[in-house]
Simulated assay, not measured.
Amino acid sequence: MNSTIYDTAKTEENEGQTQIELTANETNLLVSAFNFGLVLTHLAGPWLAIRIGFKRVLLFSTLATGILTLCIPVLLETSVTAAIISRVLAGALTGPAVPVLRASLSGWAPSNEISKMVSLQIIGCPAGIVSAQFFGGLLSKYSWHLVFYLSGLLCIIWALVWQLFVFPSPEEDPRCTEDERKYIISRRNASCDSRIQRYIPWSIILTSIPVWVLTFAQLCTNWIIFLILAKFPVYLSNTFGLDVFTVGLIGTVLALVLIASGFFGFVSDIISKNKSETFSRKAISTTSSCGIALSLILLSRNPCMLVVNIALSIVLAFSVGIGSFLALEPNSMDLAPDHAGIIQGLVNTVGNCAGFGRDKNKK
């Protein structure tokens, strides 16, 4: 979506397309507005989900986001200020998604399958980014309006599917068999007791060292992810003079490697079964951190070797992926299964601050 906004800023009146003239400052505000809105509701989303249910929260937020996205082309052509406000609102409506989705797993995830389920859930984020960039690039050749219309329509369709097929717990799902229900209930860590979940121990959460360690680790990881997806392709273009298609192809490969790492969640579950969840999280996080550090150091030492740069960037992307998807993302459910959404909301509020300035210097 952000790349489409950058393209829109440079759109000329061609083949019936409306000309949109945006200053560099307006373009940056449009891109950053979503992130500012995003961090506002990371905590509010799971808090509201405790009171009215995560299904209703995500249904409303997705429907509203879809409708706002459909309105973006009209707003851009009439008032840039209105478009910026709509982007802030869209970010605020999207903010609850990850924390609330994490809370939704509390009632469904057996303790021996947490890493696998969380990693498969979270890879939807980079998968969506890659898909949007690819299809957005194709659609924008015909009309940049189509990118927003298709994105908004998909949000609305997804919300309807969510309403029809998702249930708060196996106890309420009519399609869940009795054997499946017994298996999940006997192995999940969360109590799923609304009285326990409604009482949020804020003082304990905010003074918990493990929670703040997780928060800082998420901030660092998000910074590297934004570096890989947003800045590394620009670095390759400026250093080696690669064309837009080649840079885009490399960026897509890196994103796909990041996504592929999420399918290794079963490895973490196997380690947890043979050792412990704590050992699994620490071992994977340490391995990931070493891979990230080594890749970044070697990248700085080989600035003129394209093949080496690409190979190291793939190692970097995979290292970030396994660290994030297999160690950090499931950790909120390890710390407090009944309050995983609240903890994840706090972690994401701080972690996504890494994205505020990442597009500032993009041309």
Rank of each mutant, 00 (worst) to 15 (best):
Y6V: 13
T8K: 11
K10D: 08
T11L: 13
E12L: 02
E13V: 01
L29Q: 15
A33I: 07
F34R: 11
F36V: 04
L38V: 04
V39E: 07
A44V: 14
P46R: 12
L48K: 11
A49M: 04
A49S: 15
G53A: 07
K55V: 12
R56G: 01
A64Q: 02
A64R: 09
L68D: 00
L68I: 07
T69G: 09
C71I: 14
V74K: 13
T78S: 11
T78Y: 02
S79V: 00
V80Q: 03
A82D: 00
R87N: 06
G95D: 13
P96E: 02
P99C: 12
V100M: 09
S106K: 10
S111D: 13
N112R: 14
K116M: 05
V118N: 06
I122W: 01
I123A: 11
G124D: 03
C125P: 08
G128D: 05
I129Y: 07
V130W: 06
A132V: 14
F134D: 00
F134G: 04
F134C: 01
F135V: 13
K141L: 13
W144Y: 07
W144T: 11
F148Q: 04
S151L: 15
S151Y: 01
L153T: 15
C155I: 12
W162G: 09
W162N: 08
L164S: 11
V166C: 08
F167M: 10
S169P: 01
P170E: 00
E180P: 00
I184S: 01
I185A: 05
N189V: 07
S191Y: 01
Y199Q: 15
I200Y: 03
P201C: 12
S203G: 05
S203I: 08
I205K: 14
S208P: 01
P210T: 04
P210V: 04
W212D: 13
L214F: 02
T215S: 02
T215P: 00
F216M: 15
C220W: 03
L236N: 11
L236Q: 15
N238T: 14
G241W: 06
G241C: 09
V244L: 15
G248F: 08
I250M: 10
G251S: 05
G251E: 09
L256W: 06
L258R: 04
A260M: 12
F263Q: 10
F263C: 13
G265H: 14
G265V: 10
F266Y: 13
V267A: 05
V267C: 10
S272L: 11
N274V: 06
S276V: 07
S276T: 12
E277H: 11
S280C: 07
K282M: 08
T287A: 15
T287K: 05
I292R: 11
A293C: 13
L294A: 15
L294H: 11
L299E: 07
L299C: 03
R301S: 00
M305P: 00
V307P: 00
L316Y: 10
L316G: 07
A317C: 08
S319H: 05
G321K: 05
A327T: 08
L328W: 00
N331Q: 12
S332N: 06
D334L: 10
L335F: 04
L335R: 03
D338Q: 04
G345R: 06
N348W: 03
T349S: 14
N352Q: 09
G355S: 12
K363A: 09
